[in-house]
Design a protein around this nucleic acid. Structure first.
Lengths: 252, 252
DNA sequence: CAGCTGTGACTGGTCTGACCAGTGGACTAG
DNA sequence: CTAGTCCACTGGTCAGACCAGTCACAGCTG
Protein backbone atom coordinates (compact mmCIF):
# COMPACT_ATOMS: atom_id res chain seq x y z
CA UNK A 1 0.00 0.00 0.00
CA UNK A 2 1.67 3.17 -1.18
CA UNK A 3 1.32 6.20 1.01
CA UNK A 4 0.57 9.06 -1.32
CA UNK A 5 -0.52 12.59 -0.54
CA UNK A 6 -3.76 12.77 1.43
CA UNK A 7 -6.25 14.11 -1.08
CA UNK A 8 -9.51 15.42 0.26
CA UNK A 9 -12.80 14.91 -1.56
CA UNK A 10 -13.72 18.26 -3.02
CA UNK A 11 -17.22 19.51 -3.56
CA UNK A 12 -18.08 22.53 -5.63
CA UNK A 13 -18.40 25.77 -3.69
CA UNK A 14 -21.52 27.64 -4.57
CA UNK A 15 -21.32 31.36 -5.15
CA UNK A 16 -23.87 32.15 -2.47
CA UNK A 17 -21.77 30.19 0.02
CA UNK A 18 -18.77 32.33 -0.59
CA UNK A 19 -20.88 35.41 0.00
CA UNK A 20 -22.05 33.95 3.30
CA UNK A 21 -18.47 33.21 4.24
CA UNK A 22 -17.31 36.70 3.41
CA UNK A 23 -20.01 38.24 5.55
CA UNK A 24 -19.39 35.88 8.43
CA UNK A 25 -15.66 36.45 8.25
CA UNK A 26 -16.15 40.19 8.25
CA UNK A 27 -18.30 39.75 11.31
CA UNK A 28 -15.77 37.54 13.06
CA UNK A 29 -12.98 39.98 12.24
CA UNK A 30 -15.02 42.84 13.62
CA UNK A 31 -15.29 44.67 10.32
CA UNK A 32 -19.02 44.24 10.72
CA UNK A 33 -20.77 44.72 14.03
CA UNK A 34 -24.33 44.21 15.25
CA UNK A 35 -26.50 47.21 14.53
CA UNK A 36 -24.64 48.06 11.37
CA UNK A 37 -26.28 47.69 8.01
CA UNK A 38 -25.41 45.70 4.95
CA UNK A 39 -25.63 47.46 1.61
CA UNK A 40 -28.87 46.96 -0.25
CA UNK A 41 -29.29 43.83 -2.32
CA UNK A 42 -28.70 45.68 -5.54
CA UNK A 43 -25.57 47.23 -4.10
CA UNK A 44 -24.33 43.81 -3.02
CA UNK A 45 -24.98 42.57 -6.55
CA UNK A 46 -22.45 45.13 -7.75
CA UNK A 47 -19.92 44.48 -4.99
CA UNK A 48 -19.94 40.70 -5.28
CA UNK A 49 -20.42 40.75 -9.06
CA UNK A 50 -23.16 38.14 -8.98
CA UNK A 51 -26.84 38.18 -9.77
CA UNK A 52 -29.48 39.24 -7.32
CA UNK A 53 -30.76 35.68 -6.99
CA UNK A 54 -27.37 34.64 -5.68
CA UNK A 55 -27.17 37.53 -3.27
CA UNK A 56 -30.64 36.78 -2.04
CA UNK A 57 -29.88 33.10 -1.45
CA UNK A 58 -26.90 34.15 0.63
CA UNK A 59 -29.07 36.60 2.57
CA UNK A 60 -31.66 33.91 3.21
CA UNK A 61 -29.00 31.66 4.70
CA UNK A 62 -27.65 34.47 6.86
CA UNK A 63 -31.15 35.37 7.91
CA UNK A 64 -31.97 31.78 8.77
CA UNK A 65 -28.85 31.67 10.91
CA UNK A 66 -29.91 34.76 12.78
CA UNK A 67 -27.07 36.87 11.43
CA UNK A 68 -29.06 39.50 9.58
CA UNK A 69 -32.63 40.59 9.12
CA UNK A 70 -34.10 42.03 5.95
CA UNK A 71 -37.14 44.23 6.03
CA UNK A 72 -38.89 45.25 2.85
CA UNK A 73 -38.61 48.92 2.07
CA UNK A 74 -35.92 49.66 4.60
CA UNK A 75 -33.64 52.15 2.86
CA UNK A 76 -30.77 51.30 5.19
CA UNK A 77 -30.48 47.75 3.97
CA UNK A 78 -30.35 44.45 5.90
CA UNK A 79 -29.49 44.84 9.57
CA UNK A 80 -26.72 42.95 11.33
CA UNK A 81 -28.36 41.40 14.36
CA UNK A 82 -26.81 41.09 17.78
CA UNK A 83 -25.80 37.51 18.40
CA UNK A 84 -28.56 35.66 20.07
CA UNK A 85 -28.96 32.04 20.85
CA UNK A 86 -32.16 31.81 18.93
CA UNK A 87 -30.45 29.91 16.15
CA UNK A 88 -28.93 27.52 18.62
CA UNK A 89 -32.33 27.07 20.15
CA UNK A 90 -33.84 26.35 16.77
CA UNK A 91 -31.35 23.57 16.15
CA UNK A 92 -31.99 22.02 19.53
CA UNK A 93 -35.71 22.08 19.03
CA UNK A 94 -35.17 20.41 15.71
CA UNK A 95 -32.95 17.85 17.36
CA UNK A 96 -35.56 17.15 19.97
CA UNK A 97 -38.40 16.92 17.49
CA UNK A 98 -36.79 14.92 14.76
CA UNK A 99 -34.38 12.72 16.58
CA UNK A 100 -37.11 11.01 18.57
CA UNK A 101 -35.81 11.82 21.99
CA UNK A 102 -37.62 10.00 24.73
CA UNK A 103 -39.25 11.84 27.56
CA UNK A 104 -36.80 10.17 29.90
CA UNK A 105 -33.86 11.62 28.04
CA UNK A 106 -35.33 15.08 28.09
CA UNK A 107 -36.19 14.96 31.76
CA UNK A 108 -32.83 13.47 32.63
CA UNK A 109 -31.20 16.30 30.80
CA UNK A 110 -33.27 18.80 32.72
CA UNK A 111 -32.40 17.16 36.01
CA UNK A 112 -28.74 17.50 35.17
CA UNK A 113 -28.89 21.05 33.90
CA UNK A 114 -31.17 22.39 36.55
CA UNK A 115 -29.31 20.62 39.33
CA UNK A 116 -26.01 22.02 38.18
CA UNK A 117 -27.38 25.52 37.78
CA UNK A 118 -28.85 25.39 41.25
CA UNK A 119 -25.63 24.07 42.70
CA UNK A 120 -23.65 26.94 41.22
CA UNK A 121 -26.31 29.42 42.24
CA UNK A 122 -26.33 28.36 45.86
CA UNK A 123 -22.61 29.04 46.04
CA UNK A 124 -22.25 32.21 44.04
CA UNK A 125 -25.49 34.06 44.62
CA UNK A 126 -25.39 37.50 46.16
CA UNK A 127 -27.99 38.55 48.73
CA UNK A 128 -29.70 40.61 46.03
CA UNK A 129 -29.91 37.62 43.72
CA UNK A 130 -31.33 35.53 46.51
CA UNK A 131 -34.00 38.19 46.93
CA UNK A 132 -34.72 37.99 43.21
CA UNK A 133 -35.15 34.26 43.43
CA UNK A 134 -37.46 34.52 46.40
CA UNK A 135 -39.44 37.08 44.51
CA UNK A 136 -40.11 34.68 41.66
CA UNK A 137 -41.26 32.17 44.25
CA UNK A 138 -43.84 34.65 45.47
CA UNK A 139 -44.93 35.20 41.88
CA UNK A 140 -45.39 31.46 41.44
CA UNK A 141 -47.58 31.29 44.51
CA UNK A 142 -49.72 34.11 43.20
CA UNK A 143 -49.99 32.55 39.76
CA UNK A 144 -51.56 29.40 41.11
CA UNK A 145 -54.81 31.27 41.52
CA UNK A 146 -54.78 32.37 37.89
CA UNK A 147 -54.23 29.31 35.71
CA UNK A 148 -51.65 26.77 34.71
CA UNK A 149 -50.26 28.92 31.93
CA UNK A 150 -49.51 31.74 34.36
CA UNK A 151 -47.96 29.29 36.79
CA UNK A 152 -45.85 27.83 34.06
CA UNK A 153 -44.64 31.27 33.10
CA UNK A 154 -43.71 32.09 36.68
CA UNK A 155 -41.91 28.78 36.91
CA UNK A 156 -39.98 29.70 33.79
CA UNK A 157 -38.98 32.98 35.40
CA UNK A 158 -37.72 31.10 38.42
CA UNK A 159 -35.46 28.84 36.43
CA UNK A 160 -34.36 31.75 34.28
CA UNK A 161 -33.11 33.65 37.29
CA UNK A 162 -31.30 30.54 38.49
CA UNK A 163 -29.63 30.01 35.16
CA UNK A 164 -28.71 33.67 35.00
CA UNK A 165 -27.03 33.60 38.40
CA UNK A 166 -25.10 30.53 37.36
CA UNK A 167 -23.47 32.79 34.76
CA UNK A 168 -23.66 30.20 32.04
CA UNK A 169 -25.82 31.15 29.11
CA UNK A 170 -25.42 27.70 27.63
CA UNK A 171 -27.17 26.23 30.63
CA UNK A 172 -29.79 28.89 30.31
CA UNK A 173 -30.46 28.18 26.66
CA UNK A 174 -30.46 24.42 27.00
CA UNK A 175 -32.69 24.55 30.00
CA UNK A 176 -35.13 26.80 28.27
CA UNK A 177 -35.25 24.71 25.15
CA UNK A 178 -35.62 21.38 26.86
CA UNK A 179 -38.15 22.75 29.27
CA UNK A 180 -40.21 23.96 26.35
CA UNK A 181 -40.07 20.61 24.65
CA UNK A 182 -40.98 18.73 27.81
CA UNK A 183 -43.91 21.02 28.43
CA UNK A 184 -45.13 20.65 24.89
CA UNK A 185 -45.20 16.92 25.48
CA UNK A 186 -47.01 16.77 28.80
CA UNK A 187 -48.36 20.18 29.70
CA UNK A 188 -51.76 19.21 28.41
CA UNK A 189 -51.92 16.34 30.84
CA UNK A 190 -51.05 18.62 33.70
CA UNK A 191 -53.26 21.51 32.71
CA UNK A 192 -56.29 19.29 32.25
CA UNK A 193 -55.61 17.05 35.20
CA UNK A 194 -58.35 17.20 37.78
CA UNK A 195 -55.73 17.73 40.43
CA UNK A 196 -53.98 20.45 38.46
CA UNK A 197 -54.08 22.78 41.43
CA UNK A 198 -52.61 20.14 43.70
CA UNK A 199 -49.76 19.60 41.26
CA UNK A 200 -48.99 23.27 41.18
CA UNK A 201 -48.98 23.42 44.97
CA UNK A 202 -46.66 20.46 45.09
CA UNK A 203 -44.33 22.06 42.59
CA UNK A 204 -44.37 25.26 44.58
CA UNK A 205 -43.46 23.37 47.72
CA UNK A 206 -40.58 21.73 45.87
CA UNK A 207 -39.28 25.06 44.65
CA UNK A 208 -39.50 26.46 48.17
CA UNK A 209 -37.34 23.62 49.44
CA UNK A 210 -34.77 24.37 46.77
CA UNK A 211 -34.73 28.05 47.66
CA UNK A 212 -34.25 27.10 51.28
CA UNK A 213 -31.18 25.07 50.38
CA UNK A 214 -29.89 27.90 48.22
CA UNK A 215 -30.29 30.30 51.11
CA UNK A 216 -28.34 27.88 53.30
CA UNK A 217 -25.60 27.85 50.67
CA UNK A 218 -25.50 24.07 50.53
CA UNK A 219 -24.98 23.50 46.84
CA UNK A 220 -24.85 19.76 47.11
CA UNK A 221 -28.11 19.55 48.98
CA UNK A 222 -29.78 22.10 46.73
CA UNK A 223 -28.87 20.15 43.63
CA UNK A 224 -30.01 16.88 45.18
CA UNK A 225 -33.34 18.32 46.22
CA UNK A 226 -33.86 19.89 42.82
CA UNK A 227 -33.23 16.62 41.03
CA UNK A 228 -35.36 14.65 43.44
CA UNK A 229 -38.19 17.11 43.03
CA UNK A 230 -38.05 17.00 39.30
CA UNK A 231 -38.05 13.23 39.41
CA UNK A 232 -41.08 13.19 41.68
CA UNK A 233 -42.85 15.66 39.46
CA UNK A 234 -42.23 14.04 36.11
CA UNK A 235 -41.41 10.38 36.73
CA UNK A 236 -45.05 9.40 36.53
CA UNK A 237 -45.04 10.20 32.83
CA UNK A 238 -41.96 8.10 32.14
CA UNK A 239 -42.28 4.37 31.42
CA UNK A 240 -40.87 2.30 34.26
CA UNK A 241 -37.91 0.77 32.42
CA UNK A 242 -36.50 4.20 31.64
CA UNK A 243 -36.93 5.58 35.12
CA UNK A 244 -33.85 3.71 36.16
CA UNK A 245 -31.59 6.14 34.34
CA UNK A 246 -33.30 9.02 36.10
CA UNK A 247 -32.92 7.45 39.50
CA UNK A 248 -29.22 7.06 38.81
CA UNK A 249 -29.04 10.84 38.72
CA UNK A 250 -30.35 11.24 42.24
CA UNK A 251 -27.60 11.31 44.82
CA UNK A 252 -27.68 8.45 47.23
CA UNK B 1 -57.78 51.54 30.39
CA UNK B 2 -60.07 49.33 28.37
CA UNK B 3 -59.18 45.70 28.13
CA UNK B 4 -59.60 44.81 24.50
CA UNK B 5 -58.52 41.73 22.62
CA UNK B 6 -54.78 41.13 22.78
CA UNK B 7 -53.58 41.94 19.31
CA UNK B 8 -50.16 40.74 18.33
CA UNK B 9 -47.82 42.71 16.09
CA UNK B 10 -47.88 40.96 12.77
CA UNK B 11 -45.03 40.73 10.35
CA UNK B 12 -45.41 39.53 6.80
CA UNK B 13 -44.76 35.87 6.21
CA UNK B 14 -42.54 35.30 3.24
CA UNK B 15 -43.50 32.67 0.73
CA UNK B 16 -40.20 30.84 1.06
CA UNK B 17 -40.75 30.62 4.81
CA UNK B 18 -44.03 28.84 4.39
CA UNK B 19 -42.32 26.35 2.12
CA UNK B 20 -39.68 25.74 4.77
CA UNK B 21 -42.38 25.26 7.35
CA UNK B 22 -44.28 22.81 5.20
CA UNK B 23 -41.18 20.71 4.65
CA UNK B 24 -40.17 20.79 8.30
CA UNK B 25 -43.67 19.92 9.40
CA UNK B 26 -43.78 17.02 7.00
CA UNK B 27 -40.50 15.88 8.47
CA UNK B 28 -41.75 16.23 12.03
CA UNK B 29 -44.94 14.36 11.18
CA UNK B 30 -42.95 11.59 9.60
CA UNK B 31 -44.37 12.12 6.14
CA UNK B 32 -40.79 12.76 5.12
CA UNK B 33 -37.91 10.68 6.39
CA UNK B 34 -34.14 10.91 6.04
CA UNK B 35 -32.94 9.25 2.86
CA UNK B 36 -36.06 10.16 0.97
CA UNK B 37 -35.91 12.69 -1.84
CA UNK B 38 -37.68 15.94 -2.42
CA UNK B 39 -39.14 16.55 -5.88
CA UNK B 40 -36.94 18.52 -8.21
CA UNK B 41 -36.96 22.30 -7.95
CA UNK B 42 -39.10 22.63 -11.05
CA UNK B 43 -41.53 20.10 -9.67
CA UNK B 44 -41.71 21.98 -6.38
CA UNK B 45 -42.43 25.13 -8.36
CA UNK B 46 -45.55 23.44 -9.63
CA UNK B 47 -46.58 21.95 -6.27
CA UNK B 48 -46.15 25.13 -4.25
CA UNK B 49 -47.29 27.38 -7.08
CA UNK B 50 -44.43 29.82 -6.65
CA UNK B 51 -41.44 30.77 -8.74
CA UNK B 52 -38.21 28.88 -8.77
CA UNK B 53 -36.41 31.71 -6.98
CA UNK B 54 -38.75 31.27 -4.05
CA UNK B 55 -38.35 27.52 -4.03
CA UNK B 56 -34.62 27.89 -4.17
CA UNK B 57 -34.51 30.35 -1.28
CA UNK B 58 -36.46 27.86 0.78
CA UNK B 59 -34.08 25.09 -0.22
CA UNK B 60 -31.09 27.23 0.73
CA UNK B 61 -32.54 27.74 4.20
CA UNK B 62 -33.26 24.04 4.59
CA UNK B 63 -29.80 23.22 3.33
CA UNK B 64 -28.19 25.68 5.72
CA UNK B 65 -30.10 24.03 8.56
CA UNK B 66 -28.80 20.62 7.57
CA UNK B 67 -32.22 19.33 6.58
CA UNK B 68 -31.58 18.64 2.91
CA UNK B 69 -28.74 18.57 0.45
CA UNK B 70 -28.96 19.52 -3.19
CA UNK B 71 -26.53 18.16 -5.72
CA UNK B 72 -26.43 19.52 -9.25
CA UNK B 73 -27.51 17.05 -11.83
CA UNK B 74 -28.99 14.56 -9.42
CA UNK B 75 -32.14 13.32 -11.14
CA UNK B 76 -33.59 12.18 -7.83
CA UNK B 77 -33.82 15.65 -6.42
CA UNK B 78 -32.67 17.06 -3.08
CA UNK B 79 -31.98 14.48 -0.41
CA UNK B 80 -33.45 14.54 3.08
CA UNK B 81 -30.49 14.22 5.42
CA UNK B 82 -30.41 12.29 8.67
CA UNK B 83 -30.12 14.72 11.53
CA UNK B 84 -26.57 15.40 12.52
CA UNK B 85 -25.29 17.71 15.17
CA UNK B 86 -23.22 19.51 12.57
CA UNK B 87 -25.72 22.33 12.33
CA UNK B 88 -25.89 22.54 16.07
CA UNK B 89 -22.14 22.68 16.22
CA UNK B 90 -22.04 25.37 13.58
CA UNK B 91 -24.28 27.55 15.68
CA UNK B 92 -22.22 26.97 18.79
CA UNK B 93 -19.01 27.76 16.98
CA UNK B 94 -20.55 30.96 15.76
CA UNK B 95 -21.58 31.91 19.28
CA UNK B 96 -18.19 31.04 20.64
CA UNK B 97 -16.36 32.97 17.94
CA UNK B 98 -17.94 36.29 18.80
CA UNK B 99 -17.36 35.69 22.49
CA UNK B 100 -21.01 35.31 23.13
CA UNK B 101 -19.95 32.12 24.82
CA UNK B 102 -16.88 32.24 26.97
CA UNK B 103 -14.52 29.35 27.33
CA UNK B 104 -15.59 29.15 30.96
CA UNK B 105 -19.18 28.60 29.95
CA UNK B 106 -18.25 25.88 27.52
CA UNK B 107 -16.00 24.10 29.98
CA UNK B 108 -18.53 24.46 32.75
CA UNK B 109 -21.08 22.89 30.49
CA UNK B 110 -18.74 20.03 29.77
CA UNK B 111 -18.03 19.50 33.44
CA UNK B 112 -21.73 19.23 34.09
CA UNK B 113 -22.53 16.96 31.16
CA UNK B 114 -19.58 14.69 31.52
CA UNK B 115 -19.93 14.46 35.26
CA UNK B 116 -23.56 13.49 34.99
CA UNK B 117 -22.91 10.96 32.27
CA UNK B 118 -20.19 9.38 34.34
CA UNK B 119 -22.39 9.31 37.39
CA UNK B 120 -25.13 7.46 35.54
CA UNK B 121 -22.60 5.20 33.90
CA UNK B 122 -21.02 4.12 37.17
CA UNK B 123 -24.41 3.02 38.41
CA UNK B 124 -25.92 1.41 35.37
CA UNK B 125 -22.97 -0.06 33.53
CA UNK B 126 -22.87 -3.76 32.88
CA UNK B 127 -19.61 -5.70 33.20
CA UNK B 128 -19.38 -5.77 29.42
CA UNK B 129 -19.73 -2.02 29.20
CA UNK B 130 -17.08 -1.59 31.84
CA UNK B 131 -14.81 -3.70 29.68
CA UNK B 132 -15.59 -1.47 26.71
CA UNK B 133 -14.67 1.58 28.72
CA UNK B 134 -11.42 0.07 29.87
CA UNK B 135 -10.66 -0.82 26.30
CA UNK B 136 -10.91 2.79 25.19
CA UNK B 137 -8.53 3.65 28.01
CA UNK B 138 -6.00 1.23 26.55
CA UNK B 139 -6.48 2.83 23.16
CA UNK B 140 -5.79 6.24 24.65
CA UNK B 141 -2.57 5.01 26.17
CA UNK B 142 -1.47 3.63 22.83
CA UNK B 143 -2.40 6.81 20.98
CA UNK B 144 -0.07 8.93 23.07
CA UNK B 145 2.82 7.53 21.06
CA UNK B 146 1.22 8.56 17.80
CA UNK B 147 0.24 12.21 18.03
CA UNK B 148 -2.20 14.55 19.68
CA UNK B 149 -4.84 14.09 16.99
CA UNK B 150 -4.88 10.34 17.59
CA UNK B 151 -5.04 10.88 21.33
CA UNK B 152 -7.87 13.30 20.91
CA UNK B 153 -9.75 10.79 18.83
CA UNK B 154 -9.26 8.08 21.42
CA UNK B 155 -10.43 10.50 24.09
CA UNK B 156 -13.52 11.16 22.04
CA UNK B 157 -14.20 7.44 21.87
CA UNK B 158 -13.93 7.22 25.65
CA UNK B 159 -16.50 9.91 26.27
CA UNK B 160 -18.69 8.49 23.55
CA UNK B 161 -18.88 5.14 25.26
CA UNK B 162 -19.67 6.86 28.54
CA UNK B 163 -22.43 8.90 27.01
CA UNK B 164 -23.80 5.82 25.31
CA UNK B 165 -23.96 3.84 28.52
CA UNK B 166 -25.77 6.72 30.17
CA UNK B 167 -28.57 6.05 27.67
CA UNK B 168 -29.15 9.69 26.95
CA UNK B 169 -28.49 10.76 23.41
CA UNK B 170 -29.00 14.38 24.35
CA UNK B 171 -26.04 14.17 26.68
CA UNK B 172 -24.12 12.41 23.98
CA UNK B 173 -24.82 15.01 21.35
CA UNK B 174 -24.28 18.01 23.59
CA UNK B 175 -21.07 16.57 24.92
CA UNK B 176 -19.77 15.90 21.46
CA UNK B 177 -20.67 19.31 20.16
CA UNK B 178 -19.26 21.25 23.07
CA UNK B 179 -16.16 19.13 23.13
CA UNK B 180 -15.57 19.93 19.49
CA UNK B 181 -15.99 23.62 20.09
CA UNK B 182 -13.67 23.64 23.08
CA UNK B 183 -11.05 21.75 21.16
CA UNK B 184 -11.31 24.09 18.21
CA UNK B 185 -10.57 26.92 20.60
CA UNK B 186 -7.60 25.52 22.44
CA UNK B 187 -6.39 22.35 20.79
CA UNK B 188 -3.70 24.29 19.01
CA UNK B 189 -2.27 25.41 22.28
CA UNK B 190 -2.20 21.86 23.55
CA UNK B 191 -0.91 20.25 20.39
CA UNK B 192 1.93 22.73 20.06
CA UNK B 193 2.74 22.93 23.71
CA UNK B 194 6.25 21.76 24.46
CA UNK B 195 4.85 19.55 27.20
CA UNK B 196 2.17 18.11 24.94
CA UNK B 197 3.12 14.59 25.86
CA UNK B 198 3.03 15.39 29.56
CA UNK B 199 -0.48 16.81 29.15
CA UNK B 200 -1.63 13.66 27.42
CA UNK B 201 -0.16 11.51 30.16
CA UNK B 202 -1.87 13.65 32.77
CA UNK B 203 -5.16 13.35 30.96
CA UNK B 204 -4.73 9.61 30.72
CA UNK B 205 -4.09 9.40 34.45
CA UNK B 206 -7.24 11.40 35.08
CA UNK B 207 -9.29 9.11 32.90
CA UNK B 208 -7.88 6.10 34.68
CA UNK B 209 -9.00 7.52 38.00
CA UNK B 210 -12.48 7.99 36.65
CA UNK B 211 -12.62 4.45 35.36
CA UNK B 212 -11.52 3.24 38.75
CA UNK B 213 -14.41 5.07 40.39
CA UNK B 214 -16.78 3.69 37.77
CA UNK B 215 -15.57 0.19 38.49
CA UNK B 216 -16.18 0.79 42.19
CA UNK B 217 -19.72 1.89 41.34
CA UNK B 218 -19.42 5.09 43.29
CA UNK B 219 -21.29 7.49 41.05
CA UNK B 220 -20.84 10.45 43.30
CA UNK B 221 -17.09 10.03 43.53
CA UNK B 222 -16.77 9.29 39.82
CA UNK B 223 -18.58 12.48 38.92
CA UNK B 224 -16.56 14.52 41.38
CA UNK B 225 -13.28 13.16 40.06
CA UNK B 226 -14.33 13.74 36.47
CA UNK B 227 -15.21 17.35 37.15
CA UNK B 228 -12.08 17.94 39.16
CA UNK B 229 -9.96 16.48 36.40
CA UNK B 230 -11.56 18.55 33.73
CA UNK B 231 -11.07 21.63 35.86
CA UNK B 232 -7.39 20.82 36.36
CA UNK B 233 -6.97 20.17 32.67
CA UNK B 234 -8.66 23.26 31.31
CA UNK B 235 -8.71 25.87 34.05
CA UNK B 236 -5.37 27.26 32.97
CA UNK B 237 -6.97 28.55 29.82
CA UNK B 238 -9.78 30.30 31.67
CA UNK B 239 -9.31 33.83 33.02
CA UNK B 240 -9.20 33.85 36.80
CA UNK B 241 -12.44 35.75 37.47
CA UNK B 242 -14.43 33.14 35.61
CA UNK B 243 -12.84 30.16 37.26
CA UNK B 244 -14.99 30.81 40.26
CA UNK B 245 -18.06 29.49 38.48
CA UNK B 246 -16.17 26.35 37.55
CA UNK B 247 -14.97 25.77 41.08
CA UNK B 248 -18.56 26.03 42.24
CA UNK B 249 -19.24 22.91 40.21
CA UNK B 250 -16.72 20.83 42.09
CA UNK B 251 -18.18 19.06 45.05
CA UNK B 252 -16.64 20.09 48.32
C1' DC C 1 -42.11 79.15 12.90
C1' DA C 2 -43.88 74.10 13.95
C1' DG C 3 -46.37 70.31 12.34
C1' DC C 4 -48.64 67.63 9.08
C1' DT C 5 -48.89 65.64 4.44
C1' DG C 6 -47.97 64.10 -0.04
C1' DT C 7 -44.62 62.39 -2.99
C1' DG C 8 -41.09 59.86 -5.02
C1' DA C 9 -36.86 57.41 -4.83
C1' DC C 10 -35.69 53.74 -2.91
C1' DT C 11 -36.20 48.90 -0.50
C1' DG C 12 -36.99 43.83 -0.45
C1' DG C 13 -40.27 39.98 -2.31
C1' DT C 14 -41.58 37.61 -6.20
C1' DC C 15 -41.91 36.24 -10.91
C1' DT C 16 -40.45 34.91 -15.73
C1' DG C 17 -37.42 33.00 -18.77
C1' DA C 18 -33.05 31.78 -20.15
C1' DC C 19 -28.32 29.47 -20.33
C1' DC C 20 -24.79 26.36 -18.61
C1' DA C 21 -22.21 22.44 -16.68
C1' DG C 22 -22.91 18.50 -14.71
C1' DT C 23 -25.33 13.84 -13.58
C1' DG C 24 -27.17 9.42 -14.24
C1' DG C 25 -30.18 6.28 -16.45
C1' DA C 26 -31.46 4.39 -20.81
C1' DC C 27 -30.08 2.88 -24.92
C1' DT C 28 -26.93 0.97 -28.22
C1' DA C 29 -22.97 -1.45 -30.07
C1' DG C 30 -19.83 -4.92 -29.20
C1' DC D 1 -24.21 -9.61 -20.90
C1' DT D 2 -21.04 -5.89 -20.73
C1' DA D 3 -19.02 -1.37 -22.13
C1' DG D 4 -19.64 2.76 -24.01
C1' DT D 5 -22.46 6.64 -25.72
C1' DC D 6 -25.95 9.85 -25.39
C1' DC D 7 -29.52 12.87 -23.90
C1' DA D 8 -33.14 14.33 -20.84
C1' DC D 9 -33.05 16.57 -16.77
C1' DT D 10 -30.82 18.37 -12.68
C1' DG D 11 -29.27 22.32 -9.91
C1' DG D 12 -26.50 26.89 -10.25
C1' DT D 13 -26.56 31.26 -12.06
C1' DC D 14 -27.93 35.15 -14.58
C1' DA D 15 -30.76 39.16 -16.48
C1' DG D 16 -34.65 41.92 -16.28
C1' DA D 17 -39.18 43.05 -14.72
C1' DC D 18 -43.14 44.27 -11.53
C1' DC D 19 -45.18 45.13 -7.08
C1' DA D 20 -46.07 46.69 -2.36
C1' DG D 21 -44.10 48.76 1.19
C1' DT D 22 -40.99 52.19 3.64
C1' DC D 23 -38.77 56.39 4.64
C1' DA D 24 -36.75 60.86 3.99
C1' DC D 25 -37.83 65.17 2.54
C1' DA D 26 -39.95 68.98 0.23
C1' DG D 27 -43.78 71.68 0.48
C1' DC D 28 -48.00 72.97 2.29
C1' DT D 29 -50.88 74.39 6.21
C1' DG D 30 -51.85 76.28 10.58
Amino acid sequence: MTKGPQFQPVQPVRAYQRIVEQVEDALARGDLAPGQRLPSERELVAQFAVSRSTVREALRVLESNGVVRSRPGDPNGPEILPFSQSALRKQMVRLARVDELTLAELIGFRMIMDGAAIQVTSRLRTPEQLADIEETLVAMRAAIDVDFAAFSEADLAFHDVIAQVSRNSLIQTCNEVVRGVVLSLISDKIAHASNSRALMLESLQHHAEVVEAIRAGDGHAAARIARQNMYDYYAGYVPEPERETLRALIED
